[in-house]
Computed example of a mutant assay.
Amino acid sequence: MANYRQNKQRPKSHATNQYESRQTENDDVPLEYTESSVNRRSSSTEKKKNKHRLWIGITVLIAFGMGIYFQGSTSTIKDVQSDGIGKGMQAGVLLVSSDDLADLAARDFKIEMKENTTTSRMLIWDFAAEDGDVVTVKVDGNILQTDINIMNNPVAVDIPVPSVVEIIGVKDGGGGITYGVKFPGAVHNSAYFNAAPVGSSNAYTITVQ
């Protein structure tokens, strides 16, 4: 009976020794291996931080550049009052809230188109309030389009090149007839701002480079 008890206890003792052996093996893992794992994790974390900083820097630079661009591209009526020319201004730009604030003189302009240009468009719009101003367009003395109600959104009129385009004031909606025009394909990327009292006209002489 005593022998039976001893035999029954031996496997338990053997299992305990195996557990202790495995535990001892884990305790004997080289310190260098543990430090290497920590270093790899630390390096990975640092790379993620650096990547995050990089994207933050790029975002800041883009925002800064856009701020400079939009600040530099702000147009006012003072930019065009001296000669009626808005250098680099886009068609449809709004400069004042009402026509009587424009203080523009009626002018004629010469527009030079790029080489080999035979046709173009004239974009015309009201750069102030939409108050019902109406104009008629002539090309080389012939009526091309009558009674154009100029609005803030540009109206496109096809024109031949070369030619002389006239814009004639027909109806003053209040404060004077003022408008802007632009000719896509012109050598100088400018918009032109003008005044056309009722019955008078502005001439745009379109030439080729």
Score class of each variant (00 low, 15 high):
Pro197Arg: 09
Val29Gln: 10
Ala186Ile: 03
Gln23Arg: 14
Phe109Asp: 04
Ile58Pro: 05
Lys49Gln: 10
Trp55Thr: 05
Ile68Thr: 09
Lys47Ser: 13
Ala195Asp: 07
Gly67Asn: 09
Ser36Thr: 07
Tyr192Asp: 02
Gln23Ser: 11
Gln23Thr: 15
Lys171Phe: 06
Ile168Ala: 05
Val38Thr: 08
Gln81Arg: 12
Met89Phe: 14
Val157Met: 11
Val165Cys: 03
Lys114His: 09
Ile68Ser: 05
Tyr179Asp: 04
Asn26Phe: 13
Ser97Leu: 06
Ala196Ser: 11
Ser98Thr: 06
Thr119Gln: 10
Ile143Asp: 06
Ser42Asn: 09
Phe183Gln: 03
Tyr69Asp: 13
Met122Ile: 08
Ala128Asn: 03
Met89Leu: 10
Asn189Trp: 00
Met113Ala: 06
Leu94Glu: 12
Ala128Val: 03
Ser120Ile: 02
Val60Phe: 14
Leu144Met: 15
Tyr4Gln: 09
Gly88Val: 02
Thr59Val: 11
Arg121Leu: 13
Asn26His: 07
His14Gly: 09
Thr205Lys: 15
Val137Phe: 02
Ala105Leu: 14
Val181Asp: 01
Lys171Ala: 15
Pro197Cys: 09
Asp140Leu: 08
Val198Arg: 01
Ser98His: 04
Thr59Gln: 08
Pro197Thr: 11
Gly72Pro: 00
Gly173Trp: 03
Asn3Gly: 08
Met151Thr: 13
Ala191Ser: 13
Val96Phe: 04
Leu104Thr: 00
Glu32Gln: 14
Ser97Gln: 13
Leu54Cys: 01
Ser36Arg: 13
Val134Ser: 03
Val157Gly: 15
Met89Gln: 14
Asp147Lys: 15
Tyr33His: 07
Gly84Leu: 03
Val155Glu: 11
Lys48Gln: 09
Gly176Met: 00
Gly84Ala: 03
Ala128Met: 05
Asn152Glu: 08
Asn202His: 01
Lys47Arg: 12
